[in-house]
Simulated assay, not measured.
Amino acid sequence: MKTPSFLQNLVTFYRDGFRGMTVGKTLWLLVLIKLFIMFAILKVFFFPNYLKTNFKTDESRSNHVRQELIDRTD
């Protein structure tokens, strides 16, 4: 009989653990909702794509980034 590998034991451990959760499922749902809000919604409103809106070509974007990096090191 073949012994289960480490990976199979790990998958079984987490699968059984998540199945047995009661309060944990609700907490994981809250964590996932919070991450969605942080990365999807807040990014759109608070972190606009500055380079895409202010520069038309990739070359002008790269020149701007290069110039900003040079200016900040002085």
Rank of each mutant, 00 (worst) to 15 (best):
Q8C: 10
V23W: 10
R61H: 00
T26W: 04
V44E: 15
G24V: 07
F47Q: 02
P4G: 07
F55Y: 10
L29D: 01
A40T: 06
P4V: 10
V31D: 07
Y14F: 05
H64M: 08
F55A: 02
N49T: 11
L27S: 03
N49Y: 04
T3E: 12
G17N: 04
T73C: 06
M1K: 12
L42C: 14
L30E: 10
S62H: 01
I41C: 13
M38A: 07
S60E: 08
H64P: 03
K2E: 05
D74I: 09
M21S: 08
T12M: 14
L29T: 15
S62G: 02
F36H: 03
F45P: 05
L69P: 00
D58G: 03
K56Q: 03
L51K: 09
I41V: 12
N54G: 07
R72H: 01
T26G: 13
L7Y: 03
V31K: 13
R72P: 01
L27E: 10
P48S: 00
F45Q: 01
G17L: 09
K56F: 14
F55R: 00
I37F: 11
D58I: 05
T53F: 07
M21C: 14
N9A: 10
L35Y: 03
T12P: 09
F55C: 01
M1V: 14
L69I: 11
A40D: 15
K52Y: 02
L35S: 13
T26C: 10
P48A: 00
K2W: 01
R19A: 11
T57D: 04
G17W: 08
W28K: 08
L30T: 06
Q67A: 13
R15H: 14
R72F: 13
F6D: 15
V31T: 15
K52A: 08
T3A: 13
T73E: 02
Q67L: 10
G24E: 03
E59S: 07
L35M: 11
L32A: 09
G24N: 07
K25C: 09
D71A: 08
F13D: 09
K25Y: 04
S5I: 07
P48L: 04
W28Q: 01
F55G: 06
F36Y: 07
L30K: 02
F13G: 13
M21A: 11
M21K: 09
L42Q: 15
T57R: 02
R66N: 13
L29Y: 03
L7A: 06
M38G: 10
F47C: 02
L7C: 09
D16N: 03
P48N: 00
V44H: 13
I33E: 14
E68Y: 11
N54M: 12
G20V: 01
P48Y: 00
N49C: 14
W28H: 12
Q8S: 11
F55N: 08
L51M: 15
R15Q: 15
K52W: 01
V44K: 14
V11C: 15
